[in-house]
Design a protein around this nucleic acid. Structure first.
Length: 791
DNA sequence: ATGGGGCTGCTTTTT
DNA sequence: GCAGCCCCAT
């Protein structure tokens, strides 16, 4: 009987291994590991989304099938032989056989997958859909960004945090103008305390879950922080009055909801048997608490991350979250995905070399079985126009030779501002291109105006949007009248819209009451109109009745673009209506405020795509151009003063280079026009960090004398191939047992030098060491990565 | 209440 | 180099 059991279990595992034979060993391990906390450290291009999707599908289809030791009572020789022979079956049939092993399957609606961007969420949704024959299963899985998931939760429980139904989300610009008004009300001088810095400080506070009261307490005697505390307080009050949340509130208020209502938290944490978080290195403290809470009942939390791709520290993301993972979940399994399937050896090696200059990281090594590929093309351009021309020419040539299509190319830059000069050249060239981000579509005045009308119709309390459009087009309602309304509203603790609706009962508004009543009647009429009509019809009616369309038509040729933009916006609404079973104004506005331009990136369109490096995270392209690799641009001027910010820039350079599959072009300009001034910057240090053996200089077209070109810069630091230990290891799969140490051991590290182990924490199959180094102080290192040697 | 003219300061990066 | 802001004149 023992023998039968062994054979049965062996056959089961063999069948699963065949079913998942398109995955590598560690990827399979991640899929099978279902019933405890799981940390996946996944390098760039190592197939982490695949693992995430396949694991969820596995949980739904087979549950904890792989690791259980259950054997059916009736199993006999015939059955066993049949199983053992099934190994040769095609995959579709295999799945039927495997379902026999299913155990503790999880219904799809009890699985939650959280991502950082809508782009990633959509990709997971699409790929999940392909895993199931029916449409419903994939749709029932809760997939979304932190913000969209929280909104979904808040919509059901808004009253518990003091918000009314139909509450709305403020965009960055709405936040800014609301903040400005608060500061004005408190008589704070913008010259001394810029709005931007206040917004930043308050955002940071919210990321740390600090309430205005907590912030005030922490401010102590510091006048600057005391002032910010005052603004924070007033700002929260005005948000509540407008029935609005800002981006950070979405997370913070959800945490608050859970903390103050244990029953609500319990209903969600009981519901979600499995919680998966993508891009865990980008989560901030608030998101960490949120995740922990949601996973608290079942503790089946899987997080996927890569510290080398952490590029959002500036907005509060903390790598501590990955390090803390094992503190909260000491039984966590840790799996590393280090095989890269995306890039050529040359590209991957260059990326490894760049990131290897960072000190604050878990040393790790990506390797690939892909070809060597071309060397990295390094191009010196004369100026930004030359740079753009080089990109256009290279693309045109490759397309003409039928090597690539337009859509195979991406141009990734550090700052959105760089897109202007690129665009100018692309327009003239006739190369199809699309720019994502930058002056966003939704940032355009006319779009913001139309959205403001819709927001006000949806939520009459929304002060910010009301102020935006009350005199747009001109209704002869000026600053004076508005401040009177605002004062009355504060006095009577009513919304401004309520005062406007009753303008005729206030003496102070005598002169403008007719116009005010007309305005409130317009909004009320449109609100009622929505009951009987579709959203796009509402926009048409609004454009006509408000006089907005007339205003634009009167302006003539100049404003023609604006009308076209509005048309595009309306077609966006119609798309929303066709995609959703129950389209609502609230739903549309919410989607509109949480979705960025990058999310609309359509891979099927044959056009070169341009975006910031930040936006490109998670994407891949056969050919990538990286313009503007100059000191003070990349790394940016303001980051060059601090080591930690420089390391973040370097991680960004790492993300940029690892986007490329086949060809990578890095370009720097001798002269660059910026802010109307010509700058002459040295080539970026990141170019220098790529060893000469991996790069190839593109000759300048008119054969300029070489003495002054890039070579001189490179020769400052010569690295020979044999010095590169990492390089050599790159081409072979690393394996073997890593030596373990205990507290008090003296060890040596390749970059940090010698030190002493002070703590040892087991983290799944890995060990986290805290080491006090003689020169650089205390560091936390992962045993399997760190390559420590005993002294 | 509005529109024009001049001045400032800006560019990191995003939900 | 340009967008957005403030101030002043209408």
């Amino acid at each position: 009987m023992q023998e039968t059991i062994k054979r049965y279990l062996k056959a089961k595992k063999a069948l699963f291994d065949i079913y998942y034979s398109d995955l590598n060993e560690n990827q399979r391990k991640s899929v099978y590991c279902v019933n405890n906390p799981l940390l996946i450290l996944a390098g760039a291009g190592s197939g982490k989304t695949t693992v995430l999707v396949r694991r969820i599908a596995h949980i739904v289809k087979f549950g904890n099938a792989y690791y259980n030791d259950l054997v059916p009572y009736e199993v006999n020789e015939m059955h066993l032989t049949a199983l053992e022979r099934s190994v040769a079956l095609p995959k579709e049939e295999l799945e039927n056989i495997l379902s026999e092993f299913a155990f503790e399957q999880c219904p799809p609606w009890r699985i939650l997958a959280i991502t950082f961007t809508n782009k990633a969420a959509n990709e997971i949704k699409e790929r999940l859909a392909k895993q199931f024959p029916d449409e419903e299963t994939a749709r029932d899985i809760w997939t979304g960004t932190f913000h969209s998931i929280c909104m979904r939760i808040l919509r059901s429980h808004h009253e518990k945090i003091g918000y009314r139904a139909g509450f709305c989300v403020y965009s960055t610009d709405d936040t800014k103008s609301a903040m400005q008004k608060c500061m004005k009300e408190l008589d704070f001088d913008e010259k001394i305390m810029p709005v931007k810095s206040v917004i930043n400080a308050i955002s940071k506070a919210k990321e740390k879950l600090q309430t205005p009261e907590m912030y005030e307490a922490e401010a102590g005697n510091n006048p600057k922080y005391q002032s910010i505390a005052k603004v924070y307080k007033l700002y929260q009050k005005s948000l509540l009055q407008s029935n609005a949340l800002d981006f950070d509130d979405i997370i913070m208020q959800t945490v608050r909801l859970f903390r103050e209502n244990k029953d609500v938290l319990k209903s969600y944490s009981d519901k979600f048997k499995y919680v998966c978080v993508d891009e865990y290195q980008d989560t901030n403290k608030a998101q960490f608490y949120l995740t922990e809470m949601l996973a608290s009942s079942h503790r089946n939390l899987m997080v996927v991350g890569d510290d080398d791709q952490s590029i959002y520290k500036f907005r509060g993301a903390t790598i501590e979250n990955i390090l803390q993972f094992d503190k909260n979940f000491s039984d966590a399994t840790v799996i590393k995905l280090e095989q890269n399937y995306r890039s050529t050896k040359n590209i991957l090696c260059a990326a490894n070399e760049i990131i290897n200059n960072n000190k604050e990281r878990h040393p790790k090594m990506l390797w690939t079985e892909n070809d060597m590929g071309s060397k990295i093309h390094i191009k010196q351009a004369l100026n930004q126009t030359d740079e753009a021309k080089y990109i256009v020419n290279t693309i045109q040539k490759a397309v003409a030779e039928n090597k690539y299509k337009y859509r195979d190319f991406a141009v990734l830059y550090r700052t959105n501002a760089q897109s202007n000069s690129l665009e100018a050249t692309f327009v003239k060239s006739g190369v199809a291109y699309r720019i994502l981000g930058g002056t966003r579509f939704s940032d355009r005045k006319e779009i913001r105006d139309v959205v403001a009308y819709l927001q006000l119709i949806n939520n009459h309390d929304d002060k910010e949007r009301l102020l935006r459009i009350i005199n747009e087009p001109s209704r002869k309602i000026g600053a004076k009248t508005i401040s009177v309304i605002s004062e009355i509203a504060v006095e009577e603790n009513k919304s401004m819209f309520e005062i406007i609706e009753n303008a005729d009962s206030y003496m102070a508004l005598k002169n403008s009451s007719v116009r005010l009543l007309e305005f409130s009647a317009l909004i009320n009429y449109l609100t009622a109109y929505l009951n009987e009509h579709l959203l796009n019809e509402l926009v048409e009616e609004m454009l006509i009745k408000s006089g907005y369309r007339q205003m634009l038509t009167d302006a003539g040729e100049e404003e023609k673009d604006r009308l076209l933009n509005i048309e595009e916006f309306v077609s966006g609404i119609m798309q929303y209506q066709s995609e959703n079973e129950e389209p609502t104004l609230t739903g549309f506005l919410e989607q509109n405020s949480l979705v960025a331009d990058v999310d609309r990136y359509d891979e099927s369109a044959d056009a070169v795509v341009m975006m910031t490096i930040h936006s490109s995270k998670g994407l891949e392209f056969p050919c990538v151009f990286l313009p503007g690799f100059e000191e003070s641009i990349f790394p940016s001027e303001q980051s060059s003063h601090s080591d930690s910010e420089l390391e973040e820039e370097r991680r960004l350079a790492y993300v940029a280079t690892t986007r490329a599959k086949k060809e990578l072009f890095i370009i720097y300009a001798k002269d660059r026009l910026l802010f109307g001034r010509i700058l002459c910057n040295k080539p970026s240090r990141f170019i220098e960090e790529i060893p000469n053996e991996l790069k190839e200089e593109v000759p300048t077209e008119n054969n300029m004398p070489r003495a002054t070109t890039a070579k001189t810069y490179y020769s400052q630091k010569t690295i020979s191939f044999s010095d590169l230990t990492i390089n050599k290891q790159l081409f072979t799969k690393p394996q073997g047992v890593v030596e373990r140490f205990s507290v008090g051991d003296h060890v040596s590290h390749i970059t940090f030098g010698s030190g002493e182990i002070i703590t040892v924490t087991t983290m799944g199959q890995d060990v986290l060491y805290e080491v006090i180094f003689d020169k650089v102080g205390t560091k936390k290192l992962m045993g399997n990565y760190a390559k420590l040697t005993k002294i």
